[in-house]
Nucleic acid binder design. Structure first.
Length: 567
RNA sequence: UGACCCAUGGUGUAAUGGCAGCACAAGAGAUUUUGGUUCUCUCGGUCUAGGUUCGAAUCCUGGUGGGUCAACCA
């Protein structure tokens, strides 16, 4: 253990949750144990906001030598499904976290929760209410006006026992009765006004089947589940702050172990929506192609897009944790994946918008294998051979007939370097007289400038990527952009919704030409297409039909210059 | 016309009564066989009014602004 190492560990500031935890450890609370949990409801797919919570909870468990449970809060059988349970487990694992043998379900505790309800009834702290949902809502009052007590509030303990067991036994149809806490109707906190504890739901649960026809409300299950699991720090988002007094009331009245709830601000990302409802609509109404569409902020969407778990974990780390509302700039997420892939992704050459180049003085039929670095950032990733021949393709954008001042690429009479190959000079070009489109460029190459030769060191302004026409592979390339054109799609002018700012260009399909080494590409392999961006092999890809998703473009200072000129 | 929470550069986050720092973004330059990467530099901030204090982003009070809460959803 060197001194330097100790010095390096020094002084990384703590977030407010870590401060609380370290204080609890210091004072010996819970025998200085740290035990967190990630408690999703299996009614949808996880998104980047959940990823923040997962990284937080599992990260804290790891950091303080504690444990982290995965618990499904599955108290509403009509909305939940095993499909979601499976996808959530897959996503948590993929993100790099392990709940070991601690996979739990709130439904595991239904019997225990029922017992807790009985305790409250016995203490005269809960009653069966015969009002329907509408009546309960009407008598709840408003935040500024107290509610009205239920006429069933003063039933005897015996009567409540009888009715509640009949509820469980299936005597009553859905919605006819509920079990309510008896707290009062005057609290300024709406959640404290005789809240519903149990409702009748003759529905098949994905785990308990038809065993139950009454189900606990989330509020009656969540805190007690944490208590049963001896969670020390129940970390949740801000909107549950007002629920905390109710959880505390349950814990106190039932007389069980009390976890400490800490609330933090949920993640918002610019140019995206995060609510389950909106995400569902995007999928259901066909604005995207499923939950794992690479434009979706879902974990499976990001994965398919080509984001790595490391980049997402790093993102979660960088954005921090606090209590104030926040909107993180997507460019930070993009920074994280570029940083990761820059170090790791092999480079290959691909041309997305091909323009034919003929090297007039290059021998007909000759093919040279050009050696190229897989990753200049990391020599250990090795080298590969790229075939070069007389007819090539470069990008349309890399040639201009009348280039402006700062254009460093190919133009009549100008020289450029072909990456890992020769320096070439544009001698002339062919233009379609009707469309004015340039169809073909004629160049000469300088044989002494082959990559690695002494003459190759000659200064030229630009370096272009290219593919050999006779060797190039066709590939379907899916170019993604942000899904929305507005920074905050949730905040639209009167009469408009987030759907009014969907980006019509969020997906552009092109057929590109890639160098032949791409033939070995396997699903989810990551590449940098030199000078273009990072790409990930889509699950639709096969040797016959290569499919690449653009994860993110490279930073492009030339595009910036051009953009400034436009405006 | 309630309760609770929050307020630091464009964005996010530090500073725990003692020099307002870091990252992203933006801008300038250097390097570069990727207009990438890397490096250097610049721009720019404590919501407001009082109070406490030798000293306040930090503590107190008022204001202002934002958020959350009125499912038999979670």
């Amino acid at each position: 253990m060197g001194e330097n190492q100790i010095r390096n560990e020094e002084k990384r500031s703590l977030n407010f949750i870590e401060e609380i935890i370290e204080e609890d450890i210091r004072t010996g609370k819970n025998e200085s144990r740290v035990h967190t949990r990630f408690p999703p409801e299996p009614n949808g797919y996880l998104h980047i906001g959940h990823a923040k919570s997962i990284c937080l909870n599992f990260g804290l468990g790891k950091k303080y030598n504690g444990k982290t449970n995965l618990r499904f809060d599955d108290t509403n059988p009509v909305k939940e499904d095993i499909e979601y349970v499976d996808s959530i487990m897959e996503d948590v694992k993929w993100l790099g976290f392990d709940w070991e043998d601690r996979l739990f379900y709130a439904s595991d505790y239904f019997e225990q929760l029922y017992e807790y309800a009985l305790i409250l009834i016995r203490k005269g702290k809960a009653f069966v209410c015969d009002m329907n949902a509408e009546e309960i809502a009407e008598t709840r009052g408003t935040p500024t006006r107290p509610g009205i007590e239920s006429p069933y509030r003063n039933r005897t303990i015996e009567e409540n026992f009888e009715l509640f067991s009949q509820m469980r036994a299936g005597f009553f149809p859905d919605g006819t009765r509920v079990l309510r806490a008896k707290i009062g109707m005057n609290s300024p906190n709406m959640h404290m006004r005789d809240p519903v504890l149990y409702r009748i739901l003759h529905a098949t649960h994905h785990r308990t089947g038809d065993k139950w026809c009454i189900y606990p409300m989330y509020d009656f299950a969540h805190g007690q589940s944490d208590s049963i699991e001896r969670i020390t720090h129940s970390i949740c988002t801000l909107e549950f702050e007002v629920h905390r007094p109710l959880y505390d009331w349950f814990i106190r009245e039932i007389g069980i172990y009390a976890p400490r709830q800490i609330e933090f601000a949920r993640l918002n990302l610019s140019y995206t929506v995060m609510s389950k409802r909106k995400l569902l609509e995007l999928v259901r109404d066909g604005y995207v192609n499923g939950w794992d569409d690479p434009r979706m902020p879902t974990v499976c969407g990001l994965r398919r897009r080509g984001y790595t778990p490391e980049s997402i974990r790093n993102f979660a780390d960088i954005i921090g944790v606090a209590k104030r509302d926040n909107v993180i700039d997507v460019s930070l997420l993009e920074f994280c994946i570029r940083e990761d892939l820059n170090k790791r992704a092999n480079r290959i050459m691909a041309v997305l918008n091909p323009l034919k180049v003929i090297i007039d003085n290059y021998p007909e039929g000759l093919v040279e294998e050009m050696e190229s670095m897989n990753n200049p950032e990391n020599e250990s990733q090795g080298k590969r051979k790229v075939p070069f021949s007389k007819v090539l393709f470069i990008e349309q954008e890399d040639f201009m007939e009348n280039p402006p001042g700062k254009f460093f690429r190919l133009a009549p009479g100008r020289e450029v370097r072909l990456r890992s190959a020769y320096i070439i000079r544009c001698e002339n070009f062919v233009k379609d007289p009707e469309t004015e489109k340039i169809t073909e460029i004629h160049c000469t190459y300088d044989p002494l400038t082959k990559s690695g030769m002494p003459e190759s060191g000659r200064k030229v302004k630009g370096t272009l990527h290219w593919v050999s026409a006779m060797h190039a592979l066709k590939a379907e390339v899916r170019l993604y952009e942000r899904l929305f054109t507005k920074e905050n799609p949730d905040d639209m002018p009167e009469g408009q919704t987030y759907k009014d700012c969907l980006n019509p260009n969020s997906l552009k399909l092109v057929t590109g030409l890639v160098e032949p080494s791409a033939l070995s590409a396997k699903v989810s392999d990551k590449y940098q297409f030199e000078r273009i961006g990072y790409f990930s092999v889509d699950k639709d890809s096969s040797a016959k039909n290569l499919v690449f998703n653009r994860v993110v473009s490279l930073k492009d200072s030339w595009a910036k210059i051009e953009k400034i000129k436009e405006t």
